[in-house]
Design a binder for these strands. Structure first.
Lengths: 132, 132
DNA sequence: ATATCTGCAAATGGTTTGCGGAGGA
DNA sequence: TCCTCCGCAAACCATTTGCAGATAT
C-alpha cells in the first residue's frame, strides 16, 4: 500500500525552492532560503522533508565526493558536470545512454538505473584562469 | 614541487590491504584488518593514510549514497555496480567510454575524468529472491 | 637532524531522532 | 478525530585535528 504523506506548507515550500533553482543546493542552503518565507522552520524539518521527497521520487539526492549531500529538483535521470575549481554542479543536456545498461545486463546484473558524472573545469572558470 | 611523503609501515600495510581485496572497503574495515598486523594502529592513522594515498593517486575514494566512503585499491578509472540489496560494490569489466567526454567538451567544459555507476541487483541476489 | 608521521582522544559538522504539541486529511 | 508532521534540542557517527612523542630519510 502507498505510504501516507501529507502536503504541509513546509514540504511544499521546500519542493518549490528546489524546483526553482539550478544550483543543486545543500540542505543548509535550502534551509536558509526557506527561512525567508517561514522564519521559524527548523533544519530538522528541512532534512525530514528532503528525505520524504526523495523517497517519493519528487527530487534526487546527489552525493559527490563532498561530506554533504546536494539535492536536485529534477528527479528524471540526467547527467552532471562538477567543476573542481568553483565547485558548481551543472545539469548536462546529453541524451541518456540506456545502451550502457545493456552491456551490464549481459554480465548478469539486474540494472535499475545508472549515474554518470563528469569532472573538470566549467566554461566560466576556464575562461578566467590559465592555471588552476 | 612535489610534497614530501614518507613510506611508513602503517601506510604500506594500508596500501597492501586495499590492493589485496575486491570488496571496496570502508575506512573502518581497513582499520580492523590493519589491527591484525599492527595491533595498536589508530583509526586516525588509517584515515590520514587513506587521504594521503588518494592524493598520491595510489587509491580511489568512492562515495555512493551512503554516509561513509569506500576505497578502491585500483586507481585506474573503471566502472562500478552497486547492489541495492546486499550493498556490495562490484568492479565492472567494461571498456572506458572516452567518447562520452567528447560530447561534454563540445559543450565548452574542460573534462578531466568521468564516473559511471550502475545500480540494481547483483547476480547473486537476483538468484536468491524473486521480490526484493 | 628534523620534518613528517603516529597513537590518543577530543572536537567537528552534517544528519538523524525523541519529544510533546500542532495541524492536514 | 487521528495520525503524521512540526520545532526544538540533544544524539549520532564518520571523519578530522591538536598534541607530544616516535620515526623515516
Amino acid at each position: 500500500m502507498a505510504k501516507a504523506s501529507r502536503m504541509t506548507k513546509q514540504k511544499r515550500l521546500i519542493l518549490e525552492i528546489l524546483r526553482g533553482t539550478r544550483v543543486h543546493p545543500t540542505a543548509d542552503w535550502v534551509y536558509q532560503q526557506a527561512r525567508q518565507v517561514i522564519p521559524d522552520i527548523s533544519l530538522g524539518t528541512v532534512y525530514r522533508n528532503l528525505r520524504l521527497l526523495c523517497e517519493a521520487g519528487e527530487i534526487m539526492e546527489l552525493s559527490f565526493g563532498s561530506t554533504f549531500s546536494r539535492f536536485d529538483g529534477n528527479p528524471l535521470n540526467h547527467y552532471h558536470f562538477v567543476c573542481r575549481q568553483c565547485g558548481r554542479i551543472y545539469d548536462l543536456d546529453l541524451p541518456l545512454r540506456e545502451e550502457l545498461e545493456e552491456e551490464v545486463r549481459r554480465a548478469g546484473y539486474e540494472v535499475e538505473h545508472h549515474r554518470l558524472e563528469f569532472y573538470g573545469r566549467c566554461p566560466e572558470c576556464a575562461r578566467g584562469a590559465g592555471n588552476p
